[in-house]
């Protein structure tokens, strides 16, 4: 039997053969992100997990300020918008009032590492039983590609046009390593979503982070190294290559703290 494209479609496209589709916990609204942005994948794996673990009625998310400020429009669960950088403080309050809910914050690097650095450190130090999802793309994407605390040395941005000079502008902040040193955190990891392999691994890590919170063990912190092709002024495919070659050299992927114990030497 000769298989034509139409014949294959007729044989395979049936509801019972569906193996992957967008989760209903993401709304039908078109994402406001640029083409190729890692936020879309991060949103989806998080919402897939909420669906798979049956938490859709017991989840409260905190949206940040930054590119993902409209996360509450896209994630079809209860969401609350926080003031810039204050998501961990708001999550603390919500989790203390509703200890049975799964409470997560979803923050970018400008929100979590710059203006919200203080809130993040103290929430992690108190060991608040929340999950923090930290999207690190090394730049302020929404406001036009300015230098962020996480910008790599020598990286060009609109406010460091000759590259980040570490003598004048300091070194990139490794927030994930910093919070791993605090006694309150229980699970700290760094992942990426630029390839299918990395995205599947990141999904497993976020699943563990959710389980840690449901068991009441302490703060779980997942950093996702992501791209910003508009801010980096590259095509999405090039940006992912650049991420692989440069970002991952500085921000090493893998678990840093598992079950409350450091599993990696912090340098």
């Amino acid at each position: 039997m000769e298989l034509t494209a139409d014949k294959i479609k007729e044989l395979v496209v049936k509801p019972e053969n569906k193996v992957y589709a967008k989760t209903p916990l993401l709304t039908d609204k078109t994402l406001s992100y640029c083409p190729g942005c890692g936020h879309g994948v991060a949103h989806r794996i998080l919402m897939e997990l909420v669906e798979e673990m049956g938490l859709e009625n017991d989840t409260i998310g905190i949206a940040p300020v930054g590119c993902s400020v409209l996360a509450y429009e896209f994630m079809n669960v209860d969401m609350q918008e926080a003031a810039h950088g204050r998501a961990p403080a708001l999550a603390t309050a919500i989790k203390r009032l509703w200890p049975g809910k799964f409470v997560f914050t979803y923050q970018g690097d400008g929100d979590l590492a710059a203006i919200g650095g203080n809130e993040t450190l103290h929430a992690c130090n108190r060991g608040e039983n929340i999950t923090i999802i930290f999207i690190n793309n090394g730049i302020y994407g929404m406001t036009g590609g300015q230098m962020a605390p996480t910008t790599l040395p020598g990286m060009r941005t609109s406010t460091s046009p000759y590259g980040r000079d570490t003598h004048m502008m300091g070194n990139p902040l490794k927030m994930t390593e910093i919070v791993a040193m605090l006694p309150g955190t229980y699970f700290v990891t760094r992942q990426a979503v630029h390839t299918a392999k990395h995205a599947r691994k990141a999904k497993k890590a976020i699943k563990k982070a959710i389980e840690v919170q449901l068991e009441g063990k302490g703060t779980s912190f997942v950093e996702i190294v992501s791209n910003c092709n508009s801010g980096w002024k590259m095509t999405p495919v090039k940006a992912n290559q650049w991420l692989e070659e440069n970002m991952l050299d500085y921000y090493h992927l893998g678990d840093i703290k598992v079950d409350g114990k450091l599993v990696k030497e912090i340098v």
């Binding site: 395979v12 496209v13 569906k18 967008k22 993401l26 936020h39 995205a199 599947r200």
Partner: peptide
């Protein structure tokens, strides 16, 4: 479908 940021791809397998 996993890498698609906008989740526009539906996959079938049989």
């Amino acid at each position: 479908a996993v890498v698609c940021p906008d989740g526009v791809i539906t996959v079938y397998r049989a």
